[in-house]
Simulated assay, not measured.
Amino acid sequence: MSPDDERNDGLFGGSGETRTRLPEGEGGDDLYGARRSSRSGRTSSRSMVTVMGVVVLLIAAIAFANRGGDESSSGRADEKKPDTAATAPTAEKPVGGKNGGIPSGFAHDEQGAQSAASNYAVSLVSADILKPARRTEIVKQLFVADKVSELQGKFDKTYSKEFLNKVGLDDKGNAAPGHTYVSRTVPVGTKATAYSDSAATVEVWCTGAFGTAGQDTTNPVSNDWFTLTLKLRWADNDWKVQSFQSKDGPAPVNGDNKVSTADEIAKAVQEYGGFTYAR
């Protein structure tokens, strides 16, 4: 297979970085390429100075807006200033509990559907999905019952031993000694494009860190941005996935961040746990 064939197949990015893909959903959904090659190039020094200037101004404006008053405005230093308080919660309880480490028991409303989609996106694009035993549990929990068998077969076919070997994992989805496989997805925002009591379509805008942390890795951990669209159905007193598809972006300009070492990335993944996401 030529490099171009590999790139078109969706298993590897143009620079050799992992492009793990999810099996297609119902209705001809595209295969999901969860890892993309990092956008190359850096902003110029002038652009960075401009961006930093804007950030400084925004921070200053926010600080001014949250001062809670100004003594000079009334000339009375002892004037009582407005009390500050945390933003009051306005939504339903985001989730009732967890099943196998995955949040479950979402509210039967639009916000509950968005919360479910966010948490399901994290599981669908995780390192656990590459582990055969864990994958079976994830598929059973996330998808509607009449899709489990079909999707299980597609996942198993996609994440074959050959594929796992290509990304540096053994047949159980584990990285080689001294390496840490990273697939950490972070939802940035959600949008419900359709909703009823029995079904919902939710778009989840995501970023994340994907790759293998190790001194001699050929698949270094990099950042990606993508949007995952999930069609949900209300079943068994919870929101379940009917089908899904994805697209690249929206992606911001890369920041001029100092690249961390492989050891630092691996340590961060081991020390920092994930969140339960709510809308």
Rank of each mutant, 00 (worst) to 15 (best):
Y159W: 13
S160H: 02
S160L: 03
S160K: 06
S160D: 03
E162G: 13
E162W: 12
F163T: 03
F163Q: 00
L164C: 02
N165H: 03
N165I: 06
N165S: 14
K166A: 08
K166W: 03
V167R: 05
V167E: 02
V167N: 06
G168H: 04
G168V: 08
G168R: 02
L169I: 09
D170H: 04
D170E: 03
D171H: 04
K172I: 01
G173K: 05
N174Y: 01
P177G: 11
P177L: 13
P177F: 13
P177W: 05
T180I: 12
T180C: 14
T180W: 09
T180N: 10
T180H: 12
Y181I: 08
Y181H: 13
Y181F: 15
V182M: 09
V182F: 10
V182H: 09
V182C: 07
V182Q: 09
S183M: 15
S183G: 13
S183D: 11
S183I: 03
R184S: 12
R184I: 09
R184P: 05
R184Q: 15
R184V: 07
T185A: 15
T185S: 12
T185C: 11
V186K: 11
V186R: 14
P187R: 15
P187G: 14
P187W: 14
V188A: 07
V188P: 15
V188N: 12
V188L: 11
V188F: 06
G189F: 06
T190A: 10
K191G: 10
K191T: 10
K191M: 10
A192Y: 01
